[in-house]
Amino acid sequence: MKFSIYRFDPDKDAKPYMQDYELDDGLLKSGMMLLDALLLLKARDESLSFRRSCQEGVCGSDGMNINGRNGLACITRLSELNQPVVIRPLPGMPVIRDLVVDLEQFYRQYRNAKPFLINEDPVPEVERLQSPQQREQLDGLYECILCACCSTACPSFWWNPDKFLGPAALLQSWRFLADSRDQATEERLTNLEGPFRLFRCHTIMNCVEVCPKGLNPTRAIGRIKELMVKRSL
């Protein structure tokens, strides 16, 4: 199986280049994921760098651009990929080395969304309870693993990563706006005002297309806009 992988070591290379690799078909087993192939390649060329951890689509470390589409290497089946498999780092982020990118910008926007419950009531003896219906509102929101596949597939985030929150952070914004226990609706909506933070989203929906967990940030963004309209009336 043939691979073409983006390589860049800022200490040695003047500019990035694509390196070809080939794996013997004998080494490949059915049901193997791309990450397994990358680990085999790394065993052969240990200078090849990429992030990975849980290897089962839970930690979100191994987001990368696979044949032009962002995804997690650990849950991408080798059998479904056209050859040569072209692997690049997540688009639009500064490259630290090979497939490892600097996600500081992404995390900064995540922090900007205040991804925690804000509730000024005294802490109760037991949990802050929700009805099953209230809890249901968080389905499709809390599952985000922050792999950054969506935000780095978003053209609006490419153009304004410092000002536009991006789909991942906006999904989290809605996750806490939709939470019956959160009391900071007003503050959260005010924080999203202006032409950049929320309204750079032009419903391109690349985020929905690539999300490895099947989440829908575009819908979450739509719900935030709805809430803003309701508030302004």
Partner: peptide, 12 residues
């Protein structure tokens, strides 16, 4: 205002 630049433009 910032509200006008975001929400109102979008609504318009």
């Amino acid at each position: 205002s910032r509200a006008a630049q975001g929400l109102r433009a979008w609504l318009l």
